[in-house]
Design a protein around this nucleic acid. Structure first.
Lengths: 351, 351
DNA sequence: CCGCTTGTTGAAATCGTTTCCATGATCCTT
DNA sequence: AAGGATCATGGAAACGATTTCAACAAGCGG
């Protein structure tokens, strides 16, 4: 290690430990001479403060914990990256834990973060079931920002904070509404939404928006078909084949909205296997603007939202809290979703 | 915070601080009665040790720093995730810093890691220029494992360690050789390699393997065309158009080896723009087995290596070091690259 | 029964930093 | 010029753990 401590600097500069600390930190109540000597000595010796000792004394670790299901998912990774950059600017270190949506690992990670005295946390729980663990953290005084998740209100009437937790959320409902309206506008009446299990907020909101539009348009609600993927085993390839193959419930869907790279890939492969041309025989839309969607032939119309904005907003919200601002105002952010029109959607073939 | 310290536990259990520490940690030289009482008291009070204080005393932070160019790159993210899982098992916390290959940020991050007293580091420098910074760290006693990078020998003759640094590397050269041999075996004589700037090991090794095979086969070396991408602005789309458009140097290449999702995407789009069918008019191979390669029509033959293995091996190597094993043996790992045959390569059309 | 080893225990030192407090010194005001 | 206010400074007490060391009890062979 560095080996040289504040004590060495003090001796070299011929002042006391307290003066060195003051000179290097606040600079308040410190004479110009001492400031100069200390800076010179520190520089000459290559002094580097020990964060551990400092943290122990000040009770702030300068670390922010980030709990995310899977860091190797590019969507998550992009969010984390943006948040890390913002936090780094503010002098914080981001530590991430991949939890694979396993409640046990989530709890363990949260507990470890707590033991390491993180100053705050960015969390995206795998499901709402773990909300109590987060509540315990918050009760312990650790600021927590929820990222694109819902946390149900406490079931014990004791501490029901009416306004909920600080959070950054994406307007998946609005995006789904726009997408559905667009397809209906093209003439589609049977649309399938392939998304993840409804245990998390994004899928729940998407489904809600999807159905809302059908209801508002006064269309046959059975035309809004859901296909939920609990685990992307074959990336929805089999499900899509089944969906497109037979004509149950009044015929196969003429349009599919698919979540993410892998499900989208499964859908495209299934369409190819069945000899269905996109967009002539089948319109396809991607939820999330991935490389695959942008580059595929034909290019896939997609719902896009800025992952960087999500990460930045989450970091800002947390920094706000860490800055002592416990004000309830601006404790929630809702980010927009855009519809990027490309070549993969067209009016359905006449029935 | 937790609020309750080892002192509270000591009082509750009616023993001294030292006994509590012994009981909770080693358990050596502790009577059954004390062990029981301490465990009970700690449990009842919900005691959670303070990592900061512990670290300060023991001089080990239990943290491992990871320096990577861009965590939002799925390849890097996968490596990091695997390493994190392995390190977590061993009780270490992984902290990552994205450096965007900016030497300044790399240095800053390394310095910060050092200040936070990380026990070790996993680094993939953006270029070899920063090697000196890493050397300084190693000289300071921090174990460092290099991930898929080369670090040149010190230019000052003083401390030239003959065996280099512990590192995990991927056999990109072998992979490139296999790929090139395969294409040559199909009859190709003009092959283009589109890869990244040669500032880092993977590209350098690939280029070397690529050329070696041409030389060994006694083929016209001008058939081995290089196209280096310093920044993937248009994802090599323009370069590919130029490459395939005219017939300089004895004709356009009949096969292209493209690095990663984005360059591959650019190549495929360019081929489409020029009306070249894959693999009839142009054979295409991907370096790295991405979603796009697996899902494209036709499916793209790819060079694949296990990113999880890279992460795991790096973690293991570092853990080995941290375990006190400074033995030079097994300080370097070389991971294999496989050629995954799919449908995107065929013998070239007769000239 | 004595001396020696083995095993438990608690008081105190330590890690490197920040911060409280007392002590002078300087300066300004009346 | 005396008295109070402000400021720079160093000694020492935290922060919460681990670890050394000495003390003491018990077991045991001779």
């Amino acid at each position: 290690m560095s080996g040289i401590t504040i004590r060495d600097v003090a001796e070299a500069a011929g002042v006391s430990l307290a003066s060195v600390s003051r000179a290097l930190n606040g600079g308040k109540n410190v004479s110009a001479r001492v400031a100069r000597d200390v800076a010179a000595a520190a520089d000459r010796l290559g002094y580097q403060p020990d964060f551990l000792a400092r943290s122990l004394r000040t009770r702030t670790s300068g670390m922010v914990g980030c709990l995310v299901s899977d860091i190797s998912n590019p969507l998550n990774a992009t969010i984390v990256k943006a948040a890390e950059a913002r936090l780094r600017e503010a002098g914080y270190l981001l530590v991430v834990a991949s939890t694979a949506n396993d409640p046990g690992r989530e709890r363990a990670a949260a507990s470890e973060f707590r033991g390491r005295r993180v100053d705050g946390m960015l969390v995206a729980p795998g499901s709402d079931a773990n909300a109590k663990a987060w509540r315990a953290l918050v009760a312990a005084g650790t600021p927590v920002v929820i990222v694109d998740r819902d946390v149900p209100e406490a079931d014990d009437g004791a501490d029901n904070d009416t306004d909920g937790w600080p959070s950054v959320q994406v307007d998946h409902r609005g995006g789904a509404r726009a997408a559905t309206r667009y397809l209906i506008g093209l003439g589609h009446r049977r649309i399938a939404l392939l998304t993840a299990d409804a245990v998390m907020r994004p899928s729940r909101e998407r489904i809600a928006g999807f159905r809302e539009v059908f209801a508002e348009a006064g269309l046959d609600p059975t035309g809004a078909q859901l296909c939920l993927q609990s685990s992307a085993m074959d990336f929805a390839h089999g499900d899509t084949l089944a969906l497109l193959g037979d004509g149950k419930d009044g015929g196969r869907p003429t349009a599919i909205i698919a979540l993410g790279t892998r499900i989208l890939a499964g859908v495209l492969r299934a369409a190819r296997d069945l000899g269905l041309a996109v967009p002539r025989d089948l319109s396809v839309m991607s939820v999330g603007d991935t490389d695959l969607a942008a580059v595929h032939t034909p290019a896939i119309t997609a719902l896009r939202w800025s992952l960087e904005d999500v990460g930045r907003a989450a970091a800002d919200l947390l920094l706000h809290r860490l800055g002592g601002d416990a004000g309830q105002a601006q404790s929630r952010a809702l980010l927009p979703v855009d519809l990027v029109l490309r070549d993969s959607c067209a009016p359905p073939a006449v029935v």
